[in-house]
Structure formats: C-alpha cells, structure tokens
Computed example of a mutant assay.
Amino acid sequence: MNKLNWRSMIAVLSDLTEDELKQALDAELKTHKRPAIARRLHQRYSAMRTARERVQIMKGLKK
C-alpha cells in the first residue's frame, strides 16, 4: 500500500480487508513509523480480527 496520510487513510479504512490492514500496519511499522497512523491501523485491524474470531468461536459452540 502506498504511503498513507491521515485523510486518505480515514477515507479507505472501512473498505480494507483484514489482510490489507495487516499489510498496511506492517508497512507503517517497517518504513514510515508514524505512531498515530500505526495506532489507528492497529485499532481497526484488531476490531476486524476480533469480529472474525468471535464468529468462529460461536460456530464452534453450535456443534
């Protein structure tokens, strides 16, 4: 993913998949190292991961 500025990140954040968010977070941590953007990417990534894991857990309980 290209270098994000705050406005462009907010504009596309809700459209990114979990994998795309992880890639963007990894790129931010490796190259740009901006704490505010890394924090926001991690918040969104964590929320998506948690939702996915919760669905998997609930499916496991139904068996």
Rank of each mutant, 00 (worst) to 15 (best):
N2I: 10
N2M: 14
N2G: 12
N2V: 10
K3Q: 11
L4D: 07
L4T: 06
L4R: 04
N5Q: 02
W6G: 05
R7H: 10
M9Q: 01
I10L: 13
A11Q: 13
V12S: 08
V12F: 06
L13Q: 06
L13S: 06
S14T: 08
S14K: 10
S14I: 05
D15R: 09
D15H: 10
L16T: 05
T17A: 03
E18I: 05
E18P: 01
E18F: 03
D19N: 14
D19P: 13
D19F: 14
E20S: 06
L21H: 00
L21W: 02
L21F: 00
L21G: 04
K22A: 08
Q23S: 09
Q23H: 11
A24G: 02
A24K: 02
L25N: 01
L25F: 03
A27G: 02
A27S: 07
E28Q: 00
T31I: 10
T31F: 13
H32D: 08
R34M: 03
P35F: 15
P35Q: 09
A36Y: 15
A38H: 02
R39N: 11
R39G: 10
L41D: 04
L41H: 00
L41F: 01
H42D: 11
H42I: 04
R44G: 06
R44S: 08
Y45D: 00
S46Y: 15
S46I: 10
M48S: 07
M48C: 07
A51D: 11
A51R: 10
A51F: 09
R52I: 04
R52S: 06
E53Y: 02
V55M: 09
Q56W: 14
Q56P: 09
M58W: 15
G60K: 04
L61I: 11
K62T: 14
